[in-house]
Amino acid sequence: MKILKHFKSLEIPKQGRKIFNAISLKDFPFAKVAKNNDGFPVILIESKIDNTFLTQKNIRLKYLELNHNLECKITENGKTDFANYSVITFKSGEEVLQSYYFGIVENLLKELSKKPTQKEVFETFKGFIEVFRALSNSPKTTIQGLWSELLLIETSKNPEILVNYWHNRPEEKFDFNADTEKIEVKSSSNMERIHIFTSEQLNAPKEKKVLIASVFAKQSSNGRSISDLLNSILVSLNEDSLIEKLYSIVSNTLGSSLEQGLKIKFDYDIAKNSLRFYDSELISKIEKINIPNNVSEVKYKSDLTNIKPIDPIIIKSNELLFKSLKTTP
């Protein structure tokens, strides 16, 4: 990632809160990457003055600060100058988080015109602020669960299709939903294919086809992290909206556990080689007819050990979701 590389080459300025050492970004002539006196990453954005900043509040979040129309002292290539910028400061010295931050920023900078107005900058970065606001929330699922979903995307034949159909909210009934095709990812750290299901996941309407992706996710210091899988997936994504969605879901899912979640590693080879798909209709379940009308959110464990896996390629369908999955061993 070029922006991160530029940031690392900068020295920490010796004094002053509004003093920055900076480098102009060749691909984005209206922006600079900088380092403040705390050693934190800063993005400086020049924009045409249209008084939009007068109606905007400065933002203070756990990891992020956004200040509008701030006069800054910038040192670049040995020359020092004063100018006004939109200043986005990421308050962390952790490289894995800095890489995550720059990945989001780079994608957003692509959306701006060559000479953005203040209104354009503020509108573009609205979603960016929400992504980092989510980092104060409680986690929506386990790190292992999110890693396993990302593994399915990363190992697929077409990651763009998987990201497109990925749930926007972790609370949704299925991890991937293409209407008539659905995939629910289940992971196990004890190398057993015994998973917890909701009644809805195994009692889908007949016109809907549900595949259960079962994977062994075992922590390993030599494995791959969520950050590693993200970087691998991003190479395959060409649409800015899908990149934005990927970052947004990861942030919303991990919430306050993002810093820890980006670092924990799982054995990639074990997971990839253990990935199997199962027809939900063949899994033991409590039939919907046996669940009283006034009973909801029913969950239970089912053992998939003796069920024959299914190859997604043999399923006849007009949808793209199952076709994007790789054939299992």
Results as ranks from 00 to 15, higher is better:
Gly255Glu: 04
Thr198Pro: 02
Glu244Met: 08
Gly255Thr: 08
Glu239Leu: 13
Lys206Cys: 01
Thr198Gly: 14
Ala204Trp: 03
Pro205Asp: 10
Ser256Lys: 14
Thr253Ser: 15
Arg224Met: 10
Ile196Glu: 13
Asn222Arg: 08
Lys209His: 12
Val210Leu: 06
Ser256His: 02
Thr198Val: 06
Leu234Gly: 00
Ala204Met: 07
Ser221Asn: 13
Gln219Val: 12
Ile249Asp: 01
Gln260Phe: 03
Ile196Arg: 14
Asn222Thr: 02
Arg224Val: 02
Leu242Tyr: 10
Lys218Gly: 00
Ser214Phe: 05
Asp228Tyr: 04
Leu262Asn: 01
Ser221Gly: 05
Ser248Met: 00
Ser257Pro: 03
Lys218Arg: 14
Asn203Ser: 12
Lys208Pro: 00
Lys206Asn: 10
Leu246Pro: 00
Asn238Leu: 02
Thr198Phe: 07
Leu254Trp: 06
Thr253Asp: 01
Leu202Gln: 02
Lys245His: 03
Glu200Gly: 00
Val235Tyr: 05
His195Asn: 10
Glu207Ile: 12
Val250Tyr: 02
Leu262Thr: 01
Ser225Cys: 12
Glu244Ala: 10
Lys206Asp: 14
Gln219Thr: 11
Ser257Met: 09
Lys209Thr: 13
Gln260Leu: 07
Gly223Leu: 07
Leu258Val: 10
Ser220Lys: 06
His195Val: 06
Lys206Thr: 08
Gly255Ile: 05
Glu207Ala: 05
Leu211Gly: 06
Gly223Trp: 04
Val235Gln: 13
Val210Asp: 04
Glu259His: 03
Phe216Lys: 03
Lys263Asp: 07
Ser221Trp: 02
Ala213Asn: 06
Leu237Trp: 06
Ser199His: 14
Asn252Met: 09
Ser225Trp: 04
Ile226Gln: 00
Ser256Tyr: 01
Asn203Leu: 08
Ser227Ala: 15
Asn222Ile: 02
Thr198Lys: 15
Leu230Glu: 11
Glu244His: 09
Ser257Asn: 14
Asp228Met: 04
Glu207Tyr: 11
Leu242Ala: 04
Leu202Ile: 09
Ile233Phe: 06
Gln201Met: 06
Gln260Asn: 08
Ser199Phe: 00
Pro205Thr: 09
Ile243Glu: 09
Ser256Trp: 00
Asn252Gly: 14
Lys263Thr: 06
Glu200Ala: 11
Gln260Glu: 14
Val210Glu: 03
Asp240Gly: 11
Lys206Phe: 10
Glu259Ile: 07
Ala204Ser: 15
Gly261Thr: 08
Thr253Phe: 02
Phe216His: 07
Ser248Gln: 08
Arg193Leu: 13
Glu200Asp: 15
Ile243Phe: 09
Gln219Tyr: 08
Asn238Trp: 01
Leu234Val: 13
Asp240Ile: 09
Val210Tyr: 00
Leu246Cys: 12
Ser257Leu: 07
Gly261Ser: 07
Ile243Ser: 14
Phe216Val: 02
Gly255Asn: 05
Ser236His: 15
Leu246Trp: 00
Lys245Ala: 09
Ala204Asp: 11
Leu230Ile: 15
Glu259Trp: 01
Lys208Gly: 00
Val215Trp: 07
Ile212Cys: 09
Ser225Thr: 07
Ser214Trp: 04
Arg193Asn: 14
Ser241Asp: 10
Leu254Cys: 05
Leu229Ser: 12
Leu258Ser: 08
Asn252Arg: 11
Asn203Phe: 08
Asp228His: 09
Ser220His: 03
Leu258Ala: 05
